[in-house]
Design a protein around this nucleic acid. Structure first.
Length: 237
DNA sequence: AAAACGATTTTCT
DNA sequence: GAAAATCGTTTTA
């Protein structure tokens, strides 16, 4: 056994100066049990996604999104989701089987992407569920960054709060550098450069009505929003 | 071709 | 917490 003493070679003051803002916040995250994780680095396969959208929305909580970028690899834990289930769900963009250039990506087998833009340059990430005949998908509303440095570089937010990196659907798209060109991407295909991996940590999962769908009449109260309790990256509630 | 809208984000009190 | 910002998509004519 060799004696490890690499820390002694670096001046302590210098290290603190460079890494203080990041290190401080990460430490705070680790102190919160809801924000721990234990990833298992194998890609989730097609069968995982070929279930009803409400079930998939629950199963996705805690899973880890991986995306390969020229800047490096982005990793983040899914901490908040919502299920959207056409044709009957009035909150769903594909309600009543409405198929347009935007919504046609609902009709894909589970594990593919539907990315829509809203209110300017905000791109929201959805993962399809069930089969290509079932127009249903899970909206990713919030993630907890694991690769903070690269996500900070990508998102370019002015907010000093770490949570503002990814506590909203448009912010998640920003973290992952997504736009409409990623519509139809297959999360089960190695060549996509984007996939999900498992996380064996068990979380306390909260359930609520979906957010900002007041127009959906009787469907607005469906308990189809899922989130990790006490996780500071969840958007609300 | 023009107008209206939105599963939001950011900024400003 | 309220109000503004912002632009692709859909609707309307």
């Amino acid at each position: 056994m060799k004696k490890a003493k690499q820390n002694e070679t670096k001046p302590k003051a210098d290290l603190e100066q460079v890494e203080k803002p990041v290190a401080k916040k990460i430490k705070k995250n680790e102190a919160n049990p809801a924000e721990e994780y234990q990833m298992v680095d194998t890609m989730l396969t097609a069968d995982f996604y070929k279930v009803d959208v409400v079930e998939l929305a629950q199963k996705l909580i805690g899973k880890i999104i991986v995306r390969q970028l020229p800047q490096g690899e982005v990793r983040a834990i899914i901490v908040e989701t919502e299920a959207y289930k056409a044709p009957e769900d009035k909150a769903c963009h594909a309600y009543n089987n409405k198929k347009t250039d935007r919504t046609k990506y609902f009709w894909q087998d589970g594990g593919h992407l539907y990315v829509y833009s809203i209110y300017g340059n905000n791109y929201c990430l959805n993962i399809t569920a069930a089969t290509k005949d079932d127009p249903e998908a899970v909206l990713i509303r919030a993630v907890q960054p694991l690769s903070f440095d690269i996500i900070k570089e990508i998102r370019k937010t002015k907010s000093p709060k770490l949570q503002d990196l990814s506590n909203g659907p448009g912010k998640c798209g920003g973290c992952l550098l997504l736009d409409k060109s990623h519509n139809g991407l297959n999360l089960c295909d190695q060549k996509s450069g984007m996939y999900l991996i498992d996380n064996t940590k068990q979380y306390e999962i909260g359930v609520s009505a979906r957010i900002n769908i007041d127009y959906a009449e009787e469907w607005k109260d469906k308990p189809w929003r899922f989130y990790i309790k006490n996780n500071s990256f969840v958007s609300k509630g």
